[in-house]
Design a protein around this nucleic acid. Structure first.
Lengths: 339, 339
DNA sequence: TATTGGCACTCAAGGCCCCTAAGTGCTAAC
DNA sequence: GTTAGCACTTAGGGGCCTTGAGTGCCAATA
């Protein structure tokens, strides 16, 4: 087990490295922090830390840099939540105003978060999976097209257009709509597929093709949106911190565009420190994100977590500050969604 | 007036520079192309081109590089449309399949375009301004909320949620909806504001607050979407070609995120060469895009141009190939939208 | 036993110098 | 109008050296 002072040394290394971007050596360390011991002692501590693979020396004769494992220990045990400055609090309250339009609100949120953290910010749309059907609407558009609307109780509205080669009567639509609502209103979205399995059978045989098409469209609506939506902001921040990447930032930009991967990763992440989930470097298991860290927190609506938001940036980032920002934004978003 | 051979020299310089990324000198030029004259003659031509500010020498003793003006002349008078390869044609036809869902189709289109060109691709959503109202729907959601749907004849559907503190009867909604459709169906979206100016006056005084709210919501729907939507793909390609930028790509990424600016620029651009509009370097007038070129073409629905699509990349790009790709994709998109 | 001063060693980064290769403009001859 | 020839320029690369920050180890110390 590492001693207290040794851990303090690790904390100091992480903090100094984050601030200066220079590998940090024993001498500078005793200069900047007052450990009350000599640089030789610190050197011994550093040897221990290196043995534990918490830090590493880029070159034989230069200072040390934290490894992924080092950052991990720092985040888990050594970092304190840095309280937000008043200016930051004010920014959150000013910029994040309630709007009845969900997309608006989330777009503002993601921008705010990217400004607060100077990283790439991401906000997930509320997940359909955890919420309930409020109602279903079928609208007749011209040319035998029908627009299916699925309104969920988290405020999200999905639209899906289908074609009906056989045509239809308005009365048919009205009836299908009424029965769909009777069957689905208030039910979990996850259960929709099961509830509709035998739905078409209740209709006269000549109506069934139409009903089947509607049901299919609705299921696609549910399903296409289990694959969720993501809003991004601040990609420019990545280029701004390009020097923090050994190679190019191309794979990172590519990975970001692969939203499916990001979304899966985000949903897998559990909250750890202070309600924020953290994936450091290779922990994400995604090649393009080897040199980045990802931090997410959930936000809620009506008491239940509906989706996540977070930031992505180089592993050398201000974990404390970003955790605080993410947490604050998630809480505030939860608050205004409740209004 | 420049002689024919002098222009040929410019063409050769542009092409070689695009291929090699090396400033091109008189000797290599006569080696690679057979002008039938000596390098000294080419040097004289180059001096003329430099006088006209069509090319420039990065350093006193190195080859020449095209200026924005040089690229412009190349695009306007010297480039030929490079026919697409069979593989490219096949890719377009395979990847771009018809879907009744507009967003799906556009998302595929933008990815396809970024793959074909290896640049950042952009596709604008169909503009509301040029199209007509198909119908308007009012849906009662719980808690006194009403969802307004505006269906346009270009396939685009806008949704907007409003709150009605005073509450309402379902009959009220039905009547408002009926009258709205009577007033607006088939009308130009641009005319909606005028048509609704006195709309509320036809209702009984106690209904007017509700009607006014609905009208406002509808106008916001129209208006919020004059500010159009843009789909992007291939931002990673920008980083991949980072060396083509003197400074960092940060300002470019920032400019891209400012979608409003891009959208304005795109709508201003008129088709020039072969149906494709081109803005080279500083021509865009946007600081962040000084070192990039933008090329767009319109795509159509029902015989009228509804929006644009195009690519953004470093000024040193394959204009001929990209013009061909953009044109082909725009045409193909027009075709499948018509189905 | 943990800490320390001292010391020999390492190595990246930067400065300096020089050379080379590719390119230029100019002039006089064809 | 074109060309050969020539003197001139300069970015980039290689070699060489110095410097400074850092290391590991060891014997002495408290």
């Amino acid at each position: 087990m590492l001693q207290d002072r040794t851990l303090e040394v690790l904390r100091a290394i992480v903090q100094d490295y984050i601030n200066t971007k220079e590998p940090v050596g024993s001498k500078t360390l005793v200069d900047r922090h007052n450990f009350g011991v000599s640089s030789a002692t610190i050197r011994n501590d550093m040897a221990l830390l290196e043995e534990e693979e918490l830090i590493v020396a880029p070159h034989t004769s230069s200072g040390r840099v934290p490894t992924d494992k080092g950052y991990r220990l720092f985040v888990d045990r050594l970092s304190e939540v840095k309280p937000l400055s008043n200016a930051e609090r004010a920014a959150i309250e000013t910029l994040l105003t309630a709007s009845s339009d969900l997309e608006d609100t989330l777009a503002k949120t993601v921008r705010l978060l990217s400004h607060l953290t100077n990283q790439v910010a991401m906000v997930q749309f509320p997940t359909l999976g955890k919420s309930q059907v409020r109602n279903v609407e079928l609208l007749s558009i011209t040319d035998g097209k029908v627009l299916i609307l699925l309104v969920a109780d988290n405020g999200r509205i999905e639209q899906h257009m289908i074609e009906t080669p056989g045509g239809y009567e308005l009365d048919d639509l009205a009836e299908i709509r009424a029965r769909l609502n009777a069957a689905l209103a208030g039910k979990q979205l996850a259960s929709v597929e099961g509830l509709l399995a035998t739905f078409a059978e209740n209709f006269a045989p000549d109506r069934r093709p139409l009903v089947a098409r509607v049901v299919n469209g609705l299921l696609e609506s549910v399903d296409a949106n289990r694959t969720e939506k993501l809003l991004l902001a601040g990609t420019g921040n990545l280029a701004r911190r390009e020097n923090d990447f050994a190679g190019s930032i191309t794979p990172v930009l590519d990975a970001i565009e692969e939203q499916v991967v990001l979304l899966r990763l985000m949903s897998e992440m559990q909250s750890e420190q202070h309600g924020v989930g953290v994936r450091i470097g290779r922990e994400s298991g995604i090649a393009g994100l080897n040199e980045t860290s990802l931090m997410v927190a959930g936000y809620e609506n009506q008491g239940a977590e509906v989706a996540k938001l977070g930031v992505l940036g180089p592993t050398r980032m201000d974990y404390s500050g970003n955790i605080a920002a993410i947490r604050a934004v998630a809480r505030y978003l939860t608050k205004i969604l409740g209004e």
